[in-house]
Nucleic acid binder design. Structure first.
Lengths: 215, 215
DNA sequence: TGACTTATGTAGTGATCACTAAGAAAGTAG
DNA sequence: CTACTTTCTTAGTGATCACTACATAAGTCA
């Protein structure tokens, strides 16, 4: 890019990783520029010259976080059956929000809380909504292929998954251990339509075939 | 108590309600003292003389919030069956976090802004943990009475409920409508052990925000 | 070499943060 | 009335916020 001028004295990707970590632990408002620059190993002018401002740095950090820490979403969407999709998503999320060496919880949830009226809140809500629609589309295809019963609502199933994983993020930040979240992932899967896999240890109880409460 | 001196020029409970609203919408760190005093209709010295400091005001606001907006917890715990407890809790929470006239979501979740290492974060985590243990104890009694299968883990069931409602809070703050959360409450109940009740799926409880619900 | 370009460190900017000193205001008690 | 107590308003405190002006450092190119 710049063929001339003083070369940059730090690695932009490495610094962005440090910013991700700070935003992850502290949220958007909680992460001060001085804390960010300290973690990134640079001074404020370098931050602003490279990334724009705090909001743009956060957006870059969020993109990088999605790339590096939410790969389980793509993996889940690629599963062959709707149940497999849901199972992989819940399990992958439970693992991701309790990953040793990373802050507990999810950057997207941690940073969103308590910033009403902020542009960043809209960004994060949009991120969750986008992921939810990816799952809804995936489940719609499953209905078309007969992989899901026709009376199941793909949007409701997707909303259920996003809601459960949002709860995982909160509970992980509260300190819930990984095995507790995994147990809840299994429990949440009990009522998910489709063939139950042989791995589910909560299948010792007969599950009612159909949702009995519907208007 | 003060029989002498200049009388206080504002209503402390009314001002506290205004503080609850600000903390609910903005979180702990996001709520500035100037925004709080503006909403409460008082000046900073009155705030500090009456409530101590911002942290103590928040704690008082949290207590008041629990009293006035989490009565559904007490109501749920009083239900005769374990399933009824879970059903009332999920439904009550779904209604509470989407109450017209109140901020969407839950103060306890919204305020837990990623202030890692903050005393307020510990307070809120503790609040959730305490509620979870109330449900766990309730389910333990159900197991003893045969109301729940003996192979069900009361702690896991309680954790499941808290996780789902934590997700409700996030999704409500994202703008999820009430009926979507109620649908997910019904779905989450499908895998809850016990006899399925003839629950009417649309519980038309009045949406009066002034309902006094403390035990 | 010296002109040019870009990045860097120093040292701030005004705004806002939580919080408070000081004294006037408003009540009761004698 | 004067004393006393408490709350009020005014006007700040130092600290930190996101952000930047400015000069210098460090590279390329003639």
């Amino acid at each position: 890019m710049a063929v001339t001028g003083r070369p940059r004295g730090f690695d932009t990707d490495q610094a962005l990783d440090a910013a991700v970590d700070v935003f992850w632990r502290r949220g958007y408002d909680g992460a001060s520029v001085s804390e960010l620059t300290a973690a990134m190993g640079i001074k404020p002018p370098s931050l602003y010259a490279t990334y724009g401002d705090k909001a743009q740095l956060f957006q870059a950090a969020l993109r990088r976080y999605v790339e590096r820490n939410m790969g389980y979403v793509t993996d889940a969407l690629a599963q062959p059956t709707a149940r497999g999709v849901a199972e992989a998503f819940l399990t992958g999320n439970a693992l991701a929000v309790t990953m040793p060496g990373s802050p507990a919880g999810c950057l997207s949830v941690q940073a969103a809380v308590a910033t009403e009226g902020s542009t960043q809140l809209a960004l994060l809500t949009e991120n969750r909504t986008r992921i939810q629609s990816l799952f809804a589309d995936r489940f719609r295809r499953s209905v078309e292929r007969g992989d899901l019963p026709a009376d199941e609502d793909p949007d409701e199933l997707a909303a259920f998954l996003i809601t459960v994983t949002s709860g995982f993020a909160i509970r992980a930040a509260d300190g819930a251990p990984r095995e507790v979240l995994l147990a809840m992932a299994r429990r949440a899967m009990v009522n998910f339509p489709g063939e139950h896999s042989a791995l589910s240890p909560t299948d010792h109880r007969p599950t009612d075939p159909k949702e009995p409460t519907h208007a």
